[in-house]
Design a binder for these strands. Structure first.
Lengths: 264, 264
DNA sequence: TCCCAAAACTGACGAAACGTCGTTTTTCGC
DNA sequence: GCGAAAAACGACGTTTCGTCAGTTTTGGGA
C-alpha cells in the first residue's frame, strides 16, 4: 500500500539507507538515554550525518520517535497477522493472537517501551502524517480482532449469551490487552498485587471473558494447553523457543500436571 | 498521612498559597497549549512570580506536571473512596466504584487528560519523590478494588467458579478500566469500532466479567438499574446531575423500558 | 566530454526554553 | 531594633531545537 513504486534510483537508494541508519541510531539512543537523553545533535554525531541532513527526512525529533513506533507496531502487527492465519476454530485463533501479543511483549520489551513512549505528549508535536501512520497501525490491530469476532459469529462458534455486540466484545478485549500491558509496564501487578506472572494471569482472564460471552468451545470443552503448544510449535517456533527455552512449550500455562491445572 | 503538622506560620502560608497559584496557572496553560506549549517562562509571567521563585518549589517543569497529576488522582481517589462506602452488597459497591470512575471521566475530562499526559516520558525527568506521590495514588486505587474483592470473598458473595484468585480478578478489572479509558481518550471505540457510548459498553463488559467470576447477585438476579440510580441519587447527586442532567438518573444505561434492556 | 540548472547537502547560526546564582529583600529570634 | 538566616528575584549561562544561505553533487543534453 504505502510502498512507493521504484526505489531504483541510486539517489533514492542512498536516501533510504540513510533514513534507516538514522532510525537505528535514534532507537539506540532513545532506549539507552530515554526521551530527554536522545538529542538530535547526538543522533547527528552518532550517525555522522550533519543535522541538516537529518532534518531533511524528519521534521522534528518527535517525528523520529513516531517513525520508530510505527516500525515497532509493524512488527507486532506482523505477528498478530501471522497468528490470525492459524487454522482451526475461531477461539483457537484468538488464543493464537493472544500468544502473539504475549510473545511480542516478552521478546521485544524495547519495542513495547517505544510504543509506550509514543503514547505521550509526543503526539502533540509530531507531523500529522506520521501520527496517522501510527494510528492506522493501531486501528489495524483492533480491526483484526473485530474481524475474527465477526467471523466467529458468522460461523456460529460465537453465540452471545444474552444481548451483546461484536463491537462491545472487541472493545473489551482490546481494553484488557491495552490496559494489561500498560499496568505490566508500570510494574503494578507485581508491586501492588503481588502477581508474579502477570501475562499468565491475562491468559486466564481472557478465557473467562471468552466463556462469558459464549465463545465455543468453552474452556472446559477443549484442551487449550495443547492448542497453545501447537501455536508455539507451528506458528511461532523461533519466538517461543527464545522466550520459553528449549522444549518448554508449556512453560507459561502454570503447573503441568492436569490435576493442578485451573478449571472453570 | 502526608499532611505535614502545622502550616501555621505566616511564611508557610504564603508559600502554600503561591504553590497553589503556580499549579492553577500551570494547569491552565497545560490544558490550553499542551505539554510543549506550557513553558516555565509563561507560568512565571502569568503568575507574576519570577522564575527563580517557581524553581524553589518545583525542581523542573516535569515536577509541576506530576504535582498536577497527583491532584487529579486525588480527586478521582476521593470519588472512589466515597463510592466504596456505599452500603449494601459488595457487587453493588463495585457498581458504585465503576460509576465513580465513569462520572469522573465525564465530569473532569481535563483531569483525565492530565493523568494521561503524566503517563509519558515525563516520568523520566521528574524527581523521585514526586513520582512516588503519583505512584502511591495509583496503587491506592488498585488497593481499594482489591480490598473490596477480598471482602466480597470473605462474605461469601464472591465464590469463584473454578480456580481463580482475588489478585487475578483485581488485575483484570483494573486493566479493563485503564485500557478502556486509554482507548476512549484516543477515540478508538468511536472511530474504529463505531461505538457511540463507550462508557456504557464498559458497564456491560464489567457485568459480564463479574458474572463470569461468580460474583453474586448475578446480573439477572438483581435490579442493577435501580442500584445505579440509587448510587447516583444518594452518593453522587451533584456529579450525576451535572453529567446526566435534571432527573435523568437512568440516562446512561440505555433504553429505559425493561423489555429493551439487555439481559444475560 | 563538458556544461549548467536543479536538487541535495552542510554546519554555523539564531531562537527558545530550561535552569542557576549572586545580589537584594524579608523574616524572625533575641 | 539588630543581625543572621531564609526567601525572593531576574538577569544570565547553557542546552537543544530547528533553519538557511552558501556549497557540492547529480543528471541529462549539446
Amino acid at each position: 500500500m504505502a510502498t512507493d513504486a521504484e526505489p531504483i534510483s541510486p539517489m533514492m537508494r542512498r536516501i533510504q539507507s540513510r533514513r534507516k541508519r538514522i532510525l537505528t541510531v535514534a532507537r539506540e539512543l532513545l532506549l539507552q538515554h530515554g526521551y530527554y537523553g536522545m538529542t538530535m545533535d547526538a543522533v547527528a554525531s552518532a550517525t555522522g550525518y550533519p543535522k541538516g541532513t537529518i532534518y531533511l527526512q524528519f521534521g522534528c525529533k518527535e517525528d523520529v520517535i513516531l517513525a520508530l513506533a510505527a516500525e515497532c507496531l509493524d512488527r507486532r502487527l506482523a505477528m498478530i497477522r501471522r497468528a490470525i492465519t492459524y487454522p482451526g476454530k475461531t477461539r483457537a485463533r484468538a488464543v493464537a493472537v493472544g500468544e502473539a501479543v504475549s510473545l511480542f511483549a516478552r521478546l521485544r520489551p524495547d519495542d513495547s517501551r517505544i510504543i509506550h513512549i509514543a503514547t505521550g505528549p509526543i503526539r502533540e508535536k509530531g507531523e500529522a502524517s506520521r501520527l496517522d501512520a501510527v494510528r492506522r497501525r493501531e486501528s489495524e490491530t483492533v480491526a483484526v480482532l473485530h474481524g475474527l469476532l465477526t467471523e466467529a459469529m458468522r460461523d456460529g462458534e460465537l453465540v452471545f449469551k444474552g444481548d451483546a455486540t461484536v463491537e462491545e466484545m472487541a472493545f473489551g478485549l482490546c481494553a484488557l490487552i491495552e490496559g494489561g500491558y500498560t499496568l505490566i509496564e508500570g510494574g503494578f501487578p507485581e508491586h501492588t498485587l503481588g502477581i508474579e506472572a502477570p501475562i499468565l494471569e491475562m491468559w486466564w482472564i481472557f478465557n473467562r471473558l471468552a466463556d462469558a460471552y459464549g465463545w465455543r468451545p468453552y474452556f472446559r470443552e477443549w484442551d487449550w494447553e495443547e492448542t497453545l503448544a501447537d501455536v508455539r510449535r507451528n506458528l511461532f517456533p523461533v519466538e517461543a523457543q527464545l522466550v520459553y527455552g528449549e522444549g518448554c512449550w508449556y512453560g507459561d500455562m502454570g503447573p503441568k500436571h492436569p490435576g493442578a491445572r485451573r478449571r472453570f
